[in-house]
Simulated scan of single mutants.
Amino acid sequence: MGVRLVLLRHGQTAWNAEGRLQGQEDVPLNEKGLLQAASAATPVAVYQPVRIIASDLQRAAMTAQALGEVTGLEITYDSRLREIGYGQWEGRTRDEIGADVLAEVYESAENPRGVDGESLTDAAARTAEALAEIAASGKDGETIVVVTHGTVARAGVQHLLGVPHELWEGFRTMGNCHWLILEREPHRWQLVSYNLHA
């Protein structure tokens, strides 16, 4: 079976609700997000995780804490699981940035987001590195839950699976408190399920 990773996206924040790009701004869960985290905790706990590792941004940490309360597991944190850095775009809506600017930047995964932000390829590489290390630390048959963010969950998994950059937009970003299941077998990664929810 290998090691199973369950990647859980954090619950909703006020900025999610307003359509604002969060990036690495440390925005907490709103009331709906707290309810989502509590609702997701029980079905995710059914996978019987042995560890919970989260991004150190508080929206992910708060989501992980809800799961920790159900499972009794301690949470550890890894800054490599943070969302992509959007630089000057953080806190702005897509309308405020402008469709033409977004289209130009999004033409390539190599382009930095928000002028001084991170490229999608760089964010994918650091996330994939963290996921590979986490999986390598597990034993055969174990499940580890990783609580992270929408863009890096998708891009990190695509990087591990070897999906070409030009096809990355073919994966929809997971919804708040949705999750995916990824398995690390001896010589390959397999995406088992995607965008699951309570």
Rank of each mutant, 00 (worst) to 15 (best):
E133M: 11
E83T: 09
R113H: 12
G117T: 09
T127M: 10
Q48S: 15
S119M: 09
Q48K: 14
A123C: 11
Q22L: 12
E107N: 14
K32L: 15
E83V: 07
Q36A: 04
E25W: 12
G138A: 08
G68V: 11
V50C: 14
Y106L: 13
V101N: 02
D95W: 06
Q22T: 09
R82I: 10
L81M: 12
V105K: 00
P49T: 07
T13L: 08
N111L: 06
E107H: 08
G11Y: 04
E118F: 04
V105T: 14
Q24P: 07
A17W: 03
V115F: 10
A132N: 12
A64S: 07
Q24F: 05
R126W: 02
E107W: 02
G33D: 06
D140R: 15
W89K: 01
L8I: 07
V6C: 01
Q58R: 14
A61I: 09
R92H: 07
P49I: 02
A61V: 12
E74R: 13
G117P: 10
V44P: 03
L29I: 06
A38M: 13
D78Y: 03
D100Y: 03
M62W: 11
Q22S: 09
L120G: 08
Q22E: 12
R126V: 11
Q48A: 15
E107K: 08
A124G: 11
I97R: 01
L34Q: 07
I53P: 07
S137I: 11
V101Y: 04
E118W: 03
A66F: 00
L35Y: 02
G117N: 04
S39R: 10
A14P: 12
P112C: 06
K139I: 14
G117I: 09
E118C: 04
P112Y: 02
A66W: 00
V44S: 06
R82H: 04
R113L: 15
G23N: 10
H10P: 15
A128R: 00
R9W: 03
E18D: 14
Q65A: 15
T76F: 04
T93I: 13
E129F: 08
R126D: 15
G68A: 09
R59Q: 04
S137W: 07
G138F: 01
A136M: 14
L7V: 04
